[in-house]
Computed example of a mutant assay.
Amino acid sequence: MAVPDEPENDPVTAYLLSTFRNITRGRRFLTTMAGAFPLPLSAREISDWLEAYPPAMARAEIDEVVFTLDALCLAEDED
Rank of each mutant, 00 (worst) to 15 (best):
R27W: 00
A14C: 02
L30Y: 01
M57E: 04
V65W: 14
E6R: 03
W49P: 07
E6P: 01
A60Q: 11
N22R: 15
Y53T: 15
S42D: 13
R21K: 15
T31N: 02
E76N: 15
A75Q: 08
A43R: 11
A71V: 00
D79W: 08
T32Y: 13
E76L: 15
L30N: 03
T32Q: 09
L16D: 02
R59W: 01
E6V: 02
T68V: 09
P55V: 02
D70P: 05
Y15W: 10
E78A: 10
L50V: 12
P55H: 00
V65A: 06
P11S: 10
E76P: 12
D48T: 13
G35F: 07
T32L: 14
T68Y: 14
A71H: 06
E61S: 12
R59D: 09
T24C: 08
W49L: 13
V12C: 02
A2F: 03
D63I: 07
I46C: 08
L74R: 04
Y15D: 04
W49C: 10
E45K: 06
E64T: 01
P55G: 10
S47W: 00
S18H: 12
L39I: 08
N22I: 09
G26P: 04
E64K: 03
A60I: 07
D70R: 12
F37R: 04
L30R: 06
P54G: 05
F29G: 01
I23G: 08
D5T: 01
R28G: 00
M57C: 03
M57N: 00
R25G: 13
F67I: 09
T24R: 10
V3C: 10
R27C: 12
P40C: 12
A43K: 14
D70E: 07
T68I: 07
F29H: 03
E78Y: 04
E61D: 13
M57S: 00
P40K: 09
A43P: 07
E64F: 09
Y53E: 15
L50E: 03
I62D: 00
V66M: 01
S47V: 05
E45S: 09
L74E: 00
G35N: 06
L17P: 00
I62G: 01
S42Y: 05
I23H: 11
E78L: 15
A43Q: 15
A60K: 11
E51K: 06
D48L: 10
L50N: 10
L74S: 00
E61M: 05
V65L: 08
L16F: 03
M1S: 15
A71S: 04
G26I: 05
F20Y: 14
P54E: 01
P54K: 02
E76W: 14
D70H: 10
D5G: 01
F29L: 03
P4F: 11
P55M: 00
R25K: 13
V65R: 07
A58D: 02
V12I: 15
P55D: 01
S18I: 12
A36S: 15
A71G: 06
L17N: 11
F29N: 04
E8R: 14
R44A: 11
R25H: 14
